[in-house]
Computed example of a mutant assay.
Amino acid sequence: MPTDDTERAITLGANSYGKSGVRLVHVVRDSPRHDLRDLTVHTALAGDLDATHYRGDNTGVLPTDSQKHTVYAFAREGIGSIEGFAERLARHFADTAPAIRSARVRVEEHPWRRTGEHSFARGDGGELRTAEAAYGDGAVRFTAGVRDLLLLNTTGSAFGGFLTDRYTTLPETEDRILATAVDAAWTYETTGDDAWFDASFAAARAALLEAFADTYSLSLQQTLYAVGERILRAVPETGEVRLSLPNRHHYLYDLEPFGLDNPGLVFQAGDLPYGLIEGTVRREAP
């Protein structure tokens, strides 16, 4: 017999709180050639927070405004790798706030292109470098990655042999534009210093670019696996790679109504809707 909902206990489940969207710009001015870092930081703290949820007792709550100030104060000592910066913040929150047992700090880095000794420009795509440090029970777990990395191959991609039904109108093709905006996140099974994190990120990103460029793609799923596999091989300390690849469709435009042929020269860039291919590539457990 179904249990009467009125007799079932109601309790608090998993929860966290923090400050999202902390915009931070850091300038190194120790020489005439300045260095610029542009970050967005997100914090999330969890622990013994029942009292504030059940009774409004805020004794154990470190205000999110305090978390914001902490981000800026820690930046005063320098950034280093964004993984290392995230770890320092996460450890601080979990180790100094009595009610907090674990902390996650996620960082996104916005790229600026140098145009002079102290001049920079933005606008080359929307790519962000990302990192997250999750700290609790004395252990820290790192995730690094990229978001909105725009990639396009003008050839070297086909799509055919797919399932068809009464609603299928898509023609098979042996040559198409393949374009996507990559969201990728890979986990590290170890830790390191700032130089190691930066070098590992550079190696993983380079592997991603190479896999996309030199894989003859029969499907975006195949490309996804090739990218994940290449990152795992390039950085042995990685455990898994999570990928999200929207298919930025490019349609050959029909110029026949104007008496013109179109031998793969003119395309209409699609917007909505789009195909979305997602998956995880991981190492087998030892």
Rank of each mutant, 00 (worst) to 15 (best):
T154V: 13
F212S: 01
D261R: 15
S217L: 07
E172N: 07
R233Y: 00
S157M: 00
F201Q: 10
R166F: 03
L232P: 01
Y167A: 08
P236D: 14
L178E: 05
F201H: 15
D148G: 06
F197G: 02
S217T: 07
T187W: 04
L150H: 10
E189V: 03
T238V: 12
D271N: 15
R248K: 14
S219P: 01
S217Q: 08
Y167L: 12
D271S: 12
L209D: 11
Y167K: 08
R233A: 15
A179F: 01
L224T: 00
S200Q: 15
A199L: 01
A226Y: 00
A207C: 07
L208H: 04
L232M: 09
T164N: 09
L178R: 06
A269E: 14
D254M: 11
G161P: 09
G264C: 07
Y251L: 15
H250E: 10
I231E: 03
D271W: 01
R205L: 04
Y253E: 08
H249I: 09
L209F: 02
F159W: 11
A195P: 02
L265N: 04
L224C: 12
G270W: 02
A195G: 07
T223I: 06
S244F: 00
R205H: 15
W186P: 03
R248A: 11
F159D: 10
A269C: 03
T238M: 13
F212K: 03
V241H: 07
L243C: 10
L265F: 00
G259C: 10
L170K: 11
T190Y: 01
E172W: 05
E229M: 09
T169H: 13
E229I: 12
L272P: 00
G156L: 06
E229S: 14
D193S: 12
G270Q: 06
A213Q: 08
R147N: 04
L232G: 07
R248P: 00
R147Q: 13
N153H: 06
E210K: 11
P246A: 08
E174K: 00
L255A: 14
A199Q: 14
D175C: 05
D165F: 04
P246F: 04
F267C: 08
A202Y: 09
A179H: 06
L252M: 06
D214K: 05
T169A: 12
E256G: 06
G192T: 08
D198I: 04
D148E: 15
T191K: 02
S217H: 07
D194T: 09
R147D: 11
G228E: 03
G239E: 12
P236R: 11
T155I: 00
D261V: 10
D254V: 10
V235F: 10
Y251A: 13
A213I: 01
D271E: 13
S217I: 05
L152C: 12
A202R: 11
L260Y: 13
R233V: 14
D175K: 01
E256Y: 07
S219H: 02
D194H: 14
G160C: 05
R205D: 07
F197V: 03
A269Q: 14
D254E: 14
Y253V: 15
D193G: 15
V235Q: 07
E172Y: 06
I177L: 15
S217E: 06
G270C: 04
G239M: 09
